[in-house]
């Protein structure tokens, strides 16, 4: 009997734990009194500690999907389960960073980050936490700076630190580097990768930058044009850190590019 129990336990451990289940999710919006399908029949399982990217052309509903996971939008049909419980409204287990840093301009870096602490903590612990996360995102020396004194990349670091300081299980990234210049973007991707590796968080990134998705993700989910449906899921089987110029890297970026090119070609055909 005891042996059997042991056996079961090890078996459970071997099965990879599922953090997030998206089951047949559809979302419709009413636009001009007409029902418009935004996303359709989305089925995704995200494993604990996995880095998943969702790519798609603009308007394909990828941000809407992320907002549904965050609890900012409701589903029209289907289910989203976070650690087995259905998502209903925002949850402390899941935090999000947006394309704009959304910092409070009247607060210093420190205060903005400490705003993310979800529970009651005493001053001493708060200071320790804030220092820890300022260190994590490499903003040492900028504790007292105001948002307007920071560059776009630094503002995003604050935003990410604020999301992480409450120690969520799942971090959602809604095109957080979309507004940054190319060099800052590459640096920020490295930073996020470093954080992902050290903090062991599950992360879901929405982006329209295919290289970014290949550089960061375990899996890339390609959505079709509206209504967004899963077109393909591509496992990026390259070890990290990945080199952008490498053969494998281009192989995967090309693979994903093709998903879009075929769609564009088809559209041209239709319009003729």
């Amino acid at each position: 009997m005891i042996l059997l129990l042991f056996g079961m336990e090890t078996e459970v451990k071997q099965v990879e734990e599922i953090e997030l289940q998206i089951k047949n999710v559809c979302k419709n919006f009413m636009i001009d009194k007409k029902k418009r399908e935004i996303i359709k029949n989305i089925d995704i399982n995200v494993k604990k500690g996995e880095f998943v990217s969702i790519v798609g052309s603009s308007g394909c509903g990828k941000s809407t999907l992320l907002r549904i996971i965050a609890g900012l939008e409701t589903v029209s049909s289907g289910q989203v389960l976070l650690e087995g419980t259905e998502v209903a409204g925002t949850s402390p287990r899941c935090k999000m960073a947006f394309q704009e840093a959304r910092l409070l301009p009247w607060w210093s870096v420190e205060k903005n980050i400490s705003f993310g602490i979800g529970r009651k903590v005493d001053e001493e612990e708060k200071d320790k936490l804030v220092a820890q996360y300022i260190n994590l995102v490499g903003l040492n020396g900028f504790e007292k700076a105001l948002p307007r004194q920071l560059s776009g990349g630094m503002q995003q670091r604050v935003s990410i630190a604020r999301a992480l300081i409450s120690d969520p299980k799942l971090l959602l990234l809604d095109e957080p580097f979309g507004a940054l210049d190319a060099l800052t973007k590459i640096n920020m991707q490295k930073e996020v990768l470093k954080i992902w590796e050290s903090e062991k968080k599950t992360m879901i990134l929405v982006t329209h930058d295919i290289e970014e998705a290949v550089y960061l993700s375990d899996r890339v989910i390609v959505l079709s044009e509206r209504p967004g449906e899963i077109k393909n899921i591509i496992n990026i089987d390259i070890g990290r850190p990945r080199k952008r110029g490498s053969h494998d890297f281009s192989y995967f970026t090309n693979l994903i590019y093709k998903e879009f090119f075929t769609e564009v070609e088809r559209e041209v055909e239709y319009s003729i």
Partner: peptide, 19 residues
């Protein structure tokens, strides 16, 4: 967008008003 941010961070209505 700032209100939404507060919502994500789990702030209640009163905290959102105040901060």
């Amino acid at each position: 967008k700032l209100v939404e941010m507060a919502q994500i961070l789990g702030k209640n209505k009163w905290e959102t008003i105040r901060y």
